[in-house]
Amino acid sequence: MKNRFSFLAAAGLLFALGACEKDEVQVTANASPAPTLTANATDAGTLLSSNATKTAVVYSWTPVTFTLSDGSKPVVPVTYTLEFAKTGTNFAVVGTVPAGTNTTRDSVKVSDLNSALVKAGLTPTLPGTVDVRLRASYSGNQADMLSGVSKISAVPYSRDLYFYGASIGPLGSESPLIREQSPAKFEGYVYVPNATNAFKLSNTASASGTVFGNAGGNNTISSSSTTDFTLAGPKMYRVSVDLTAGTLTAVATDWGIVGAATTGDGTGWNQSIPMVYDTKDKVWKLTGVTLPGLGTNSEFKFRANNAWTINLGDFKDKPGTRLVQDGGNLTTSGPGKYDVTLDLRDPDKYTYSLTKQR
C-alpha cells in the first residue's frame, strides 16, 4: 500500500510551491514502500565494554523515496531510528539507536547496541534475544513507516551498579547508582541518609540482575556474597568499584565552592564556602551567597572536603555541558548574590546552576 500525503503539508517539500501558479493547485506525493531492513549478523555474541567503540552489527535498508504527482522526485528529509524490544513483547519497551537522516546503513557500535538491549529489557551477563525494526519519520502529520521485524541475540554488559537496602530504598529505577568509567571500573556519588546504612549492589534495576555483596566484611565486592556493605551517614560518598580487582572504596564528601569569585581576589582559592545537601531535591545548595568577584576574579570551582583531591570544573572539550574532575575554572556573571546548586546524581553528567538574585 502506497503512502500518499498532501504536498502542502510535507516538511521539506515546500520549496516546490514556487512552481505552482495558482494557490488552488495541490501537488501530492507518493512515498515508496516501507524500508526493508537487513543485518550482517543475527548474533552479536558477548558484548564487552572494552570493545565499546567497535562495530557490533551493521544494518542496511532500502530508503524511503518520494515521487510527486508531476513526475519529479524531490529529496525529502527522512530520519531513521533502529528500535530494539525484548522478543515477544510487541515493542512495549523500546531501546533505540539513531540511524541518521537520508541514510541507507548504520554500523552500530557495541556501546550503543548494549544500551539499547538493556533498555529493551535484556539482563546484563545473560544471553537474550530482541526484535529489531527500523522507524522512518518524514512528516509531522503523517504516520511513521516501519520495516519488518528481524531478530538479534547478544549477551549485554551492565554500565551501572545500583545501590539498595533498608535505609537506601528498594531496588528500582530510582535507586542511586554508579557508572562504568572504564572496563569493569565504576564510579559515582551516593548519598546515604541514616546513621548506619546497610546495602548491596545490583547490575540491573530489577531482581533479574547479578547482586554483589561484601565478601569477608572487608569491602571486597563479590557476586557470591550475601553480606551487606555498611556506610555511616548521613553523608554523600564518592564510591569506586573495581570488579576485576574485587574492591569497593568509599570516600565521604562535603562540598563547597572555592575561588577568586568568593572574595574578589586570589585569597578565595584558599578556603571553600560550604554547601548544604538538600535531601528533598537531592542536590547540594548555597542560597543567597555573596560572590564579589569581577573579571578574572569571577572564577570558581567546586571541591570536596576543603581540599583539591576531589574537585570539579568545566569540561574543557565542550565548555558548559558538564563538570569533570580537575576541569577548568567556572565563572560568575559579576558581583552579586547567587543561588548555587551542584547535582551529582548522573555519573555521566555532573551539572550545576548559578542564579543571580535580583
Rank of each mutant, 00 (worst) to 15 (best):
L122N: 03
F7S: 14
K356P: 07
S32C: 06
T267S: 12
P335G: 10
P347R: 10
P98V: 07
F15E: 13
L117I: 06
S107K: 14
Y352C: 04
M236G: 04
V76F: 01
T89C: 02
M1S: 15
K119Q: 15
T262A: 12
D131Q: 13
T331P: 01
K285T: 14
A184L: 11
T81S: 10
D326Y: 10
K2Y: 12
A29W: 07
L113C: 05
W61Q: 00
T87L: 08
L286V: 03
D160W: 13
A136W: 00
L134R: 03
A116N: 12
P170E: 04
S158C: 11
T290A: 14
V64F: 04
S115Y: 11
L344Q: 05
P292T: 03
V324D: 06
N114I: 07
S353I: 01
P35D: 01
N90K: 15
S240P: 00
G246A: 11
T220K: 11
G18M: 02
D23E: 15
V340Y: 12
F199L: 12
A29T: 02
N51D: 15
F315V: 00
L13Y: 11
A250S: 15
V324G: 08
W61F: 03
L231R: 14
T210R: 14
L291W: 09
T79G: 03
E21G: 07
K301L: 11
F302A: 14
F186R: 07
G128S: 08
R105H: 13
A19D: 13
P176C: 10
Q357S: 06
T103F: 11
Y59H: 14
G45E: 04
S150T: 15
P193H: 11
F300R: 09
P170L: 09
L294S: 14
G336F: 15
L146F: 15
S137I: 00
S272T: 12
P156N: 09
T196F: 01
L291F: 13
R133I: 04
V289S: 08
T42G: 03
G88M: 09
T341A: 12
S353V: 02
S173C: 00
D339L: 00
L82H: 05
M1T: 15
G140D: 12
W255R: 01
G71E: 00
D254A: 13
F163E: 05
P35A: 01
A260H: 06
S49M: 02
T196Q: 09
F186N: 03
M1R: 15
Y164W: 04
K280R: 09
T81D: 05
A198H: 13
K200D: 00
V276G: 08
A92M: 01
K119L: 13
S111N: 12
K151G: 02
A136T: 04
N51Q: 15
V130D: 10
S167N: 14
K109V: 01
T87H: 02
L161G: 01
E21A: 12
G45A: 07
P319E: 14
D326R: 06
D43I: 13
S60E: 11
K235C: 09
W61S: 01
L243G: 04
P335H: 12
F91H: 04
R4H: 10
G169H: 04
L134N: 06
A198G: 09
Y237C: 09
T204P: 02
D339K: 00
T309D: 10
Q26Y: 05
G213Q: 06
T279I: 11
